[in-house]
């Protein structure tokens, strides 16, 4: 396979939760070492939690019993199950625009075209969120791993909002209910045939990158690297990562620009949902009577959106 003219396409089919993370990390190292740009697909055969490289394990529900895997790209903690069909596009650093936002956009646009090809009227909004109307239909994350750029995303054929809302640590049931309500409002499953999506995405990425798509497999080097990641990703020290700095506030993102925040003051807990800079819903827990600090608490929450 000519690494300068080919788009290697690897369909891994159904894989374990662990492998649904480690396979594309191994590919990123392979592409950094000269393997062709690669588009891969896979479907995890089990539920798990994926947490962004910079995020704290203490953001997760302490009662969570699902496996947790820390990825090397950005974004927050997300719930993953077999209702999500994943694609990963991995290209050498030199093939991606230097501006991070532009790189993500450039490498998501073919996926958006593929969504449309299979009957989903998706668009890429100004925040690089893949949406139908104002509802998010694709979770994505991105980053530079070694000398390659990786953008991962998914076709959500079925979404368990309750499970997804349950994996995050919430300061109260009211806060969790609000998070769940916002997830139901703004995160949409788009049932489509994953095989057709694979075909469409392969065609669209090939066209966009100017490369001929060819089926491929992992290189020997990538298989070796896969062993390394299979070990690393279950290492408790790797999974635990960092602790976060929450400033006494709880924040949970639903999609770009939509989030739920909660904080306490004077025996009251205020939970609010935000859409861009607007407060959409406020719920107060605590003793009856006047709560004069609520405006300040809401202002503080509004000034501290989640990352």
């Amino acid at each position: 396979m000519d690494s300068t003219k080919s788009l290697r396409v690897i369909d891994f089919g159904r894989v374990s939760g662990l492998r649904s993370q480690t396979l594309w990390h191994a590919i990123a190292h392979g592409v950094s070492s000269g393997a062709p740009p690669t588009l891969s697909f896979m479907q995890p055969d089990e539920s798990y939690v994926s947490i962004g490289y910079h995020r704290g394990i203490d953001e997760l529900n302490p009662h969570n019993e699902l496996p947790v895997y820390r990825r090397m790209v950005g974004g927050g903690p997300v719930y993953v199950d077999d209702g999500q069909y994943f694609f990963q596009i991995v290209v050498p650093l030199a093939m991606a625009p230097a501006r991070r936002g532009d790189a993500i956009r450039t490498l998501l646009e073919p996926a958006v075209e593929a969504f449309n090809d299979v009957g989903i009227s998706a668009t890429l909004d100004a925040r690089n969120e893949v949406v139908v109307g104002d509802r998010k239909i694709c979770g994505h994350a991105a980053g530079q791993i070694s000398g390659s750029v990786v953008v991962v995303g998914n076709l959500i054929t079925r979404f368990d909002h309750l499970a997804a809302a349950s994996i995050v640590r919430a300061p109260s049931e009211v806060a969790r209910e609000e998070f769940l309500a916002q997830m139901r409002r703004y995160v949409l499953a788009t049932p489509a045939d994953s095989g057709l999506f694979l075909e469409a995405a392969t065609r669209r990425y090939g066209e966009r990158l100017g490369l001929g798509a060819e089926p491929g497999t992992l290189t020997d080097e990538e298989r070796d690297q896969l062993d390394v990641f299979d070990t690393l990703f279950v290492d408790p020290e790797w999974v635990d990562g960092l602790s976060t700095h929450q400033n006494g506030m709880w924040r949970a993102k639903v999609k770009s620009g939509v989030w739920v925040g909660s904080a306490t003051c004077d025996g009251h807990r205020v939970t609010a949902s935000f859409h861009d800079d607007e407060i959409k819903e406020v719920r107060v827990e605590g003793p009856d009577g006047t709560f004069e600090e609520m405006d300040q608490l809401l202002a503080a929450l509004a000034a501290n959106p989640p990352i």
Partner: peptide, 11 residues
């Protein structure tokens, strides 16, 4: 080390 901006992590 790494820095993160807008879901992007880079070294």
């Amino acid at each position: 080390g790494t820095i993160e901006s807008g879901k992007w992590v880079g070294p």
